[in-house]
Design a protein around this nucleic acid. Structure first.
Lengths: 245, 245
DNA sequence: CGTTAATTTGAGACCATTCAATTTCGGTGG
DNA sequence: CCACCGAAATTGAATGGTCTCAAATTAACG
């Protein structure tokens, strides 16, 4: 039980960055009931069209939101890292409007929607943190519209790498120097609106130009500033005040 | 003053569709202080990077959100119709992460952020309606990622037309039969991640195939069902329960 | 009714796709 | 530890959807 309570600690820490949480807020948050659930590779955490009775907070592993088109293609809408909610909007909206899939093995805290809303109702600061969370999600969606709508393949991928590195570095202790890209090139293609073949060529191009280094799935950034330029990356949209650009 | 109070009536009506508002809620909402402001063609209602002290509710005319890229291109992220907030997220986020521009002449109610948040704090139903509003915005952004990421030019434009027709029809009394498309083909291009030249060709193609009729900026739909198919349009993401697909 | 914005049209170039084949990687059982 | 296997990554060649550039036509507006 102690380790279970620990699971939400990371959430408390993350939310504390943009919202002041009192000791009472923190303990109320940590007292949230939830069930821990494991997901295998490609398993669905949320399905489009499903009635929603709970929200999933990612504890381990990665997950992405996606929509499937009638012609069979897939668009990935966002990629999530541990301590992030993958469907907080479902605390209020009655039906899932997109899918959420586990990248590899992952674990999530499944929190009943009613308890989450009760907590929000009784604790203004938590409510605010929840709302801000969904607003930052929305801001990231907007940036993704820009990314797939108006940037060429090279910039798109550079931008996605920058975002991911940045979000991971805010999360942990690493500077945006390197990280493990947990997704396949096909998933990267679905996230950027390209094909896997072309993603491969672009990655090789970025590597050839000294903008990234690849070793297995580990990506490092020999020249972070130049990659930022190529990706036209400005972290403002992430609304993470604790890190300067 | 009576007509001013009337300005927010449409908002009350729209929010009532997804949130139950008590008489007290309604009158509190209508008592919100605001200043009415006019905007000319292409005028900026919100600027990226700006500190935000108020929110704009569109009363007349149309507006769109956009981001400008370093290379000079522009991506339109959403298009808004009267009675919609164009930047409700700025009630909580401290800084605008994108621009909002008036399409033509428009008028908006500029509501101080502090008053809006006070109202949210004291009235749970209004707070919920506000939050849902931002969540539906986010859902539309997600669909736009899919639209520009994974649909061809024909589907993209058909989809955008469907969404627009649908939102207008939910709003007013018209069935999705026809409406005035208030934007230029260049703006349509920036909204779909295409060029104005190509948008022109696609529109002509849709017309030639009997999917739309054009008369000036008035667009009508001789075959709504077929256009929906071409656009791969499923209104679920709009979360508008009052109208069946 | 003149003047600018918006739309329309054409031809050629290019970025990304498609399709197919090959190589490498990651995991598994012998 | 190695052989094996399916998944993922890589490479090549040809195709194609969309863009670019430029010009002509039409619409909008004071």
């Amino acid at each position: 039980l102690a380790t279970d309570a620990h699971s939400l600690t990371a959430l408390v820490r993350r939310w504390s960055k943009h919202s002041h949480l009192s000791p009472d807020d923190r303990s109320a948050l940590l007292a949230l009931p939830y069930t821990r659930k494991s997901f295998g590779k490609d398993a669905y955490i949320v399905r489009e069209g499903q009635q929603t009775n709970d929200c999933a907070l990612l504890l381990k592993g990665f997950a992405f939101r996606q929509k499937l088109l009638r012609n069979g293609s897939r668009q990935i809408i966002s990629i999530h890292i541990p301590t992030e909610f993958v469907d907080l909007q479902n605390a209020l909206l009655g039906m899932a409007d997109h899918n959420v899939q586990s990248v590899d093995h992952s674990e999530a805290a499944i929190i009943p929607r009613a308890q989450l809303m009760d907590l929000a109702a009784s604790h203004p600061a938590i409510r605010k943190a929840m709302w801000i969370d969904t607003l930052i999600d929305a801001s990231i969606f907007r940036e993704w519209v820009v990314n797939v709508g108006r940037r060429n393949s090279r910039s798109r991928i550079a931008h996605l790498l920058c975002e991911f590195a940045y979000r991971l570095s805010v999360q942990g202790t690493d500077p945006p120097g390197h990280f493990e890209l947990p997704i396949t090139q096909e998933q990267l293609a679905d996230a950027t609106g390209l094909t896997a073949v072309h993603v491969n060529r672009v990655l090789k191009g970025l590597e050839a130009d000294g903008l990234i280094d690849r070793n297995r799935r580990i990506i490092s950034f020999p020249n972070w500033q130049r990659l930022r330029d190529v990706g036209d990356f400005n972290p403002r949209y992430l609304h993470a005040p604790e890190l300067a650009p």
